[in-house]
Amino acid sequence: MTSKTKQSFRWKDFINAFGPLFGLLLVVGLFSLSADLRPVFFTGGNAKMILTQTAIVATGALGMTLVIVSGGIDLSAGSVVALSSVVAATLLIQEVPPAGVILLTILAGGFIGAINGTIVAGFRMVPFIVTLGMMGIARGVAKWLANNQTVNPSENPLNRIMEPVQPLNFWPLPIGVWITIILAVLMTFVMRYAVFGRHLFAIGSNEDTARLCGVRVRSTKIMIYTIAGFFFGLAGLLQYSRLTQGDPTVAIGLELEIIAAVVIGGASLNGGSGSIMGTMLGALIMGVLKSGSSQMNWPTYMQEIIIGIVIILAVGLDKWRQSKQQTR
């Protein structure tokens, strides 16, 4: 039995680690079948465009991974991105120095996250409902703050975070992409090697056990939602920089794209499993799909259908893997 256990253990590990990667290669491979697309698609400039477009979803997905691995969900992500883009723009108009704007915008996201976490953990409410409510609240506050219109600050250094300096070459990558990459590496370490990271998995895997073992479930949860909020705030900053304006109606439905990235990356909505690497690949798969289909001149409804299918396929694969484990 030991040898059998070992074998399927590796098989599962294999799919876990490489499933999303195969997905990405498959998507890229399918697009490369088109002779028209190939010369445009496989250029440094296009790769840079994809990375830049993916950075916002990816940053949000870093935070969402924490939440989902712990067995929760955060539906307010899109609204928080919009809110913090408005916060950033408003602060810039108030002539707050760029460093201050960055800090305060991220803190604004974290503040919303802290409220989510406190309600979820303190009152033991279902995260779905709490963050659904917060989705409306944050969106409303964003519109209020922006006076129901876009906020347009004058030229400033923050506008360049997401700027593709030379659009036709891969290098140099925009700062925003680097920030995402660096944070992804950092979070990988946190998830693996920090006590916090392991408690995250423990709570998502079996909350009662975690409590029984003396894990501070409540404060860990508050921390999870707060950190997720920081990431959504940062994503809002990137969003601002991409549009160079604060727009309270931007990023509607972004939370679902973010959740999709996490799920395609192999996380289970039941909690207990998921990885930063998977999430990043999940975000990239969606980025490549979007970019590829628009370059194929497929209508947007086609993209939506395709991404929908990919989500179901990804989760189906996950389910199949689990049933494999069970029949062992």
Binding site: V195, R198, F201, A202, G204, S205, N206, D208, T209, A210, L212, C213, G214, V215, G272, S273
Partner: peptide, 17 residues
């Protein structure tokens, strides 16, 4: 009472890593 997704080591030391 175990967290099925965590490893043997992590389950043994859970809460007092």
């Amino acid at each position: 009472n175990l967290a099925p997704d965590l490893s043997v080591m992590e389950n043994i030391t859970l809460g007092r890593e």
